[in-house]
Each structure stands twice: as C-alpha cells, then as structure tokens.
Design a protein around this nucleic acid. Structure first.
Lengths: 135, 135
DNA sequence: CTCTGTGCAAAGCGTTTGCAAACGA
DNA sequence: TCGTTTGCAAACGCTTTGCACAGAG
C-alpha cells in the first residue's frame, strides 16, 4: 500500500493516523462515499469522529489531493486526484469504475460551435455492471 | 408561453396556480436552482412556501416532467424533460446551456471495452462563457 | 514547544413531514 | 363532494463549527 505521509506533508498537512486512514481507505476503494468511509474506518479506528472525516475530506479537497464525484441518483463519492478520466456507474449496486474517453474530440467540436472556453469535462455513463445485469 | 395545464393533468397532477408558476418559471429559465426558483416565484406569488416548491419539484421529477441536473461545484439545477442532451456550464456566472453531443459513439466504444450495459450518459462541460471570458 | 488536528456536542442549513384549511376537478 | 394540494411549523438528516485537549513536527 502506498504511503501518503510525504504527500500529505508536501501539502502542509500533518500525517495523523486518522488522515492516513482516510486517504488509504479511499485509495483502497477507488471511489467511496462518506457513509461507507466512516463505517469502514470505524472498524479499525473506533474512536474516529464523523466530524474528523468531514474536516479532512474538505481540507484534502482544498489541497487538491481528493476530488468529489457527483453521480446521478447517488451520494457523491470521493477519489484521489489522478489523470483526467471519466466514470462508469452501475445503477444497481452503485459500483463506480474509471474509464478513459477521448474528451478532446468532444470539447473541440463543442468549442467550434459555441463561444465557451471549455476547461473541464465531467462524464458519467450509467447502466448495469456484469454481475447486476442478470438480476 | 406554453400551457402546462393539460400536461399536468395527463400526469394525474392538478393544475394549481403554484404548480403552473413553478413549471413555467423553469421553462422560462431553461435551467434554474431551487433558490432562484423560489425567489423568482415569490415576486409574483408572495404567499408561496418553500415546502410547496420542494414538494412539487419532487412530484414532477417522479412523474418525469422534470429532471435534476447535478453540476460540479454548483447547486443542482432543474429542467423540463426533453430530448437527450448534455450541458455546458460557465464556471464564472453559473449559466447552463444545452448542447448536443453524439454520445452513442462514446457509449459504443466503452461498451465494447467494458462489460456494462450503458443506458444513460450525464455529461457536463465547464468553462467560461463569452461574457465571462474577458474578465 | 508550538501549532495543527481530534473528538465531542452544539449549531446550522437545506429538505422533508404532519396536519388543518383551502382548493381543483 | 372528495381527494389533492397548500402553507405553516416542526422535525429531520447531513454537514459545519467552537472549544478544550491531544499529538505531530
């Protein structure tokens, strides 16, 4: 498992056990919402408070270590900032996967038709994953 | 201005003045968030309560007359259900425009690489609109 | 040693609910 | 008339805040 101690310090954040637990759990899951994150961390860190989770999520988002992903009909999930990518969501089980789409083509096309300068793209494709399809 | 009386009745909803005001205001703005919607309707309908707005937004979403659009770093906006389309957001002024992207191509590409059955795509491109670009 | 972070409880805020009265069909 | 909707106030749930203590650097 990756050690986030140095990375946190580079962002002027102290590497407390709570903070490390939070970022490691997010890393481990890939994408996770607040409730599951709290539930999961509490198993091994029973004294942690929900307020600590919230405070840390927010500071790490400000420091651009984490990113909130808004999903249709679901609670937001959090992920570690990485290369530009999109998301695939299973409407049945809520599982989220990273996907790589050539958004440049889309952005160029829209840029030529509209007068916007586009700097960001948020794409979520939703459906049924393999295991939920059968049900 | 379009008359939503019949459309509401077709969805088994009574065409009350409050409800008509809500749907007409959304139609008029194209995309609007709860706060602006309440503020705007209150001008001409000072007795309306925020609870009524919420209840109606929710029933009309259930009846598939309205759709919630989740945006990065912004409050959700509501729109009247129409043909499949995507959104263009100005990060400066919050303005939202409809855009038309060939999502079929993207979906086909992802479907062939992943095992998901994709049934929905939510795309938001963000940047600066013409009037905000200069600032 | 100093300053940041934690945990608790309280406050805050947006949204929902229960209910009596009003209203649409 | 009957069932739905409204408006109010209270309740609710999620998130943030204030503060004293603990802990990282």
């Amino acid at each position: 498992m990756k050690d986030y101690t140095i990375i946190l310090r580079e962002h002027n954040l102290k590497a407390t056990p709570q903070r490390l637990a939070i970022i490691n759990t997010i890393d481990n899951y890939g994408h996770i919402n607040i409730d599951k994150l709290y539930e999961d961390i509490k198993l091994k860190f029973s004294s942690i408070s929900l307020a600590t989770i919230y405070k840390n999520i927010n500071t790490m988002i400000k420091e651009m270590l984490l990113l909130e992903v808004k999903l249709p009909n679901e609670k937001s999930v959090y992920e570690i900032v990485k290369d530009n990518h999109s998301h695939l969501l299973c409407k049945e089980c809520g599982k989220v996967e990273d996907i790589f789409i050539d958004t440049k083509k889309i952005i160029d096309e829209i840029s030529s038709k509209h007068t916007y300068t586009i700097s960001q793209s948020d794409v979520v494709l939703s459906g049924s994953c393999e295991s939920c399809k059968v049900i």
